[in-house]
Amino acid sequence: MLKISNISKTFNPGTANEKQAITGLTLHLKPGDFATIIGSNGAGKSTLFNAICGDFLTDGGRIELDGRDITFVPQHVRARIIGRLYQDPMRGSAPGMTIEENLALAAGSGGWLSHMTRKDKKKFQEQLSRLGIGLEDRMTQPVGLLSGGQRQALTLLMATMVPPKILLLDEHTAALDPATAEKVLQITKEIVDEHKITTLMVTHNMQNALDMGNRTLMMDDGRIVYDVEGAERASLTVEDLMEKFRVGAGKKLDNDRILLSN
């Protein structure tokens, strides 16, 4: 599904602030793969997502999604087949527009001049009710009135309304309180399972990294230093994971959020 071959990215080349964010990274995801990503601060996790989304052109290498070379495809064109959630719940929806208007925009059915029909509204209502957080009764309220967790759940629904070829979750529960984060993770699991969406999820919670999905990647210094799935992954504990990192990266894991949450 996703085929990243030997991509690199250096920011501010030739200056004192030169930073090799990604160095010769290669990653293949099979259709339906749900890989969790962990890594230390500045390991290049978000940069990898930005590269997939087309925030910048990589210095080298190629990116293929669903059999199509998207290395040079503009960001908004790729966005049609990529769903992305950020850590900041405010980023994924328009606060001044109502819930149903946001959903209509995400659904993207019909032409530019098409209107939201009663059928659309009914579909939205049904999909909202499956989130189980009571948004189905608030469809005409502006999104700005929702809490962070509600907004993140809505964004998740918007991102997967037309099931994307790949879903990128960039610590999408990190800004939520533990109970809400748990709920949003639950919803994430349900939606991903239902549509069998190929997913990459960055997390700072090592336990989540092992519990969710079928594959775990560890990043350091712009590379993938450890990649595990199947039986080996099933037997791993958080401690094992820390040890693997030490071996793979040749140093201790130094993500302050990971250390604080474990």
């Binding site: 994924g92 929806s93 209107h115």
Partner: peptide, 22 residues
């Protein structure tokens, strides 16, 4: 209230969202 209109409103309302959308 058309899809284009909603897209225009979203552009003004949350540029961050629009940047990473289609």
């Amino acid at each position: 209230n058309t899809r284009l209109g909603l897209a225009i409103r979203a552009t003004g309302n949350n540029p961050d969202m629009v940047k990473s959308s289609s």
